[in-house]
Simulated scan of single mutants.
Amino acid sequence: MFIGHGLLAFALVAFVVSRLPADTPTATRRRAFALGLLAGVFATLPDVDMLYAPVGLLWADGGPLALAEGFWSASTVVHRSVTHSLVVGVVAAVGFALWTRGGASKLLAVVVLGGLVAVSGTTSGLLGGLVMGAFVLGGLLVGTLAARRGVDAGAVFVTALVGLLSHPFGDLLTGEPPRLLYPFETVLVAERVTLSLDPTLHLLGAMLVELGTFWLAALVYLHLSDHEVRDYVDPTVALGLPSGGVALAVPAPTLSLSYPFVLTLLGVGLACGILVGGVDRYRARERHRPLTMALTALATVTLAVFVYLGAYLVT
């Protein structure tokens, strides 16, 4: 789900930019790729608040499930609050754009972004201030690299805005809903969006939404590259048919017990991708092999989820 935030922002920005006029089609594609990638990086930035979560592994006692529980329990201390706010996203986007303008604007950026750190430290304590500090430093690094690549401040602002504001809405299906108006106490969304009262169907729905963001990004990428999906999906995708049935052997997945199911399907998808990588007939397209492996794995996992969903509904 962490990757999905970035892929969604990439797809949205890259597609819109590809529809804007430019000097040449090649220039349009390059700008779409560049700004889409920049938006995707900004969209992953709010999850910097997970840096604290590994601390939970220190007191976890038990097997993999206990370690996972310790990890997620620790993450809830600051996760989906200080960096997942729409208010913070707008202010941060302004600050990052000001920083890339250089000159006196950098001083103003320091004031704006320093204010975010100060407010978070006051509202959420030392840990909140440290997390916001990491968030700000990460954004400044991304903005600096973008400016060195010739991206202007206006483009940095728009891509940061899309990335940072789209991120929280991707978290409404799992776990606690983000504090969308932090640092204000007003609660915009009190409970996560429920796709089904059946916890297994809810998880499967959330997983399909996530896979949908992967497919959306892939389709935009292929469109900009003038390629077709069928050229990069290997017949080994058929392995998703039995693997969806094999997943019935593990406990019915829910948000609190999803690891056995998810790892089973991802394992099959990864195996298909590796298998495709060794097929001789792809050697003539060496530079496209990673894309073929990735899309075949994605198609395999998607097919397996649908097979499992059908079997679950029948049984």
Score class of each variant (00 low, 15 high):
Ala27Glu: 15
Thr123Glu: 14
Leu263Trp: 13
Thr296Val: 07
Ala155Asn: 11
Val156Gln: 03
Ser243Tyr: 14
Ala68Gln: 13
Ala247Leu: 10
Ala60Trp: 00
Glu185Ala: 14
Arg101Val: 10
Ala190Cys: 12
Thr83Glu: 00
Gly114Phe: 03
Val233Arg: 03
Val16Phe: 11
Gly175Asn: 04
Leu295Ser: 03
Ala247Trp: 05
Gly115Arg: 01
Ala153Asp: 07
Leu197Ala: 10
Leu303Cys: 11
Tyr308Trp: 10
Arg101Gln: 10
Glu191Ile: 00
Ser196Asp: 13
Phe157Thr: 05
Pro64Arg: 08
Gly62Gln: 07
Glu191Val: 00
Ser196Gln: 07
Val111Phe: 11
Leu141Tyr: 12
Leu295Glu: 04
His202Tyr: 07
Tyr312His: 11
Ala118Asp: 03
Leu211Asn: 12
Pro25Ile: 09
Leu257Ser: 14
Gly129Ser: 02
Ser243Ala: 15
Val117Phe: 02
Phe15Trp: 15
Val158Asp: 08
Gly138Ser: 08
Ala60Met: 04
Pro251Lys: 10
Ala247Val: 10
Val112Pro: 01
Val209Gly: 01
Ala217Ile: 01
Thr24Val: 13
Ser166Phe: 14
Leu164Asn: 03
Gly89Asp: 01
Leu275His: 15
Gly139Ile: 06
Glu228Thr: 12
Leu172Arg: 01
Gly277Trp: 08
Glu286Trp: 13
Asp198His: 03
Pro242Asp: 08
Thr194Trp: 12
Phe157Val: 08
Trp72Asp: 03
Arg30Gly: 15
Pro199Ile: 05
Ala11Tyr: 02
Leu164Gln: 02
Ala43Asp: 01
Pro46Cys: 05
Arg80Ser: 12
Gly62Ala: 01
Ser81Lys: 12
Ala14Phe: 02
Ala93Asp: 01
Ala93Phe: 04
Thr122Gly: 09
Ala284Tyr: 11
Phe42Asp: 02
Ala271Arg: 06
Thr254Leu: 05
Asp47Asn: 09
Leu12Gln: 02
His167Tyr: 01
Phe10Arg: 02
His167Asn: 05
Val220Phe: 00
Glu176Asp: 14
Gly62Glu: 00
Leu270Pro: 06
Gly143Trp: 05
Thr254Val: 08
Phe261Ser: 04
Val233His: 03
Pro260Trp: 08
Tyr312Glu: 07
Val119Cys: 07
Pro183Leu: 03
Ser124Lys: 13
Pro21Gln: 09
Ala11Ser: 05
Leu45Lys: 04
Glu176Arg: 14
Pro290Gln: 07
Met207Gln: 14
Val88Glu: 07
Ala109Met: 04
Tyr282His: 13
Val117Ser: 02
Arg230Leu: 13
Glu191Ser: 11
Leu197Lys: 12
Arg179Ile: 06
Leu107Ser: 11
Phe214Asn: 10
Leu141Pro: 00
Ala97Tyr: 00
Leu107Ile: 14
Leu113Pro: 01
Leu224Lys: 06
Phe42Ile: 05
Gly6Asp: 05
Val246Met: 12
Asp226Tyr: 10
Gly89Leu: 04
Asp61His: 14
Tyr282Ser: 04
Pro242Glu: 08
Val78Lys: 00
Ala304Trp: 06
Val314Thr: 13
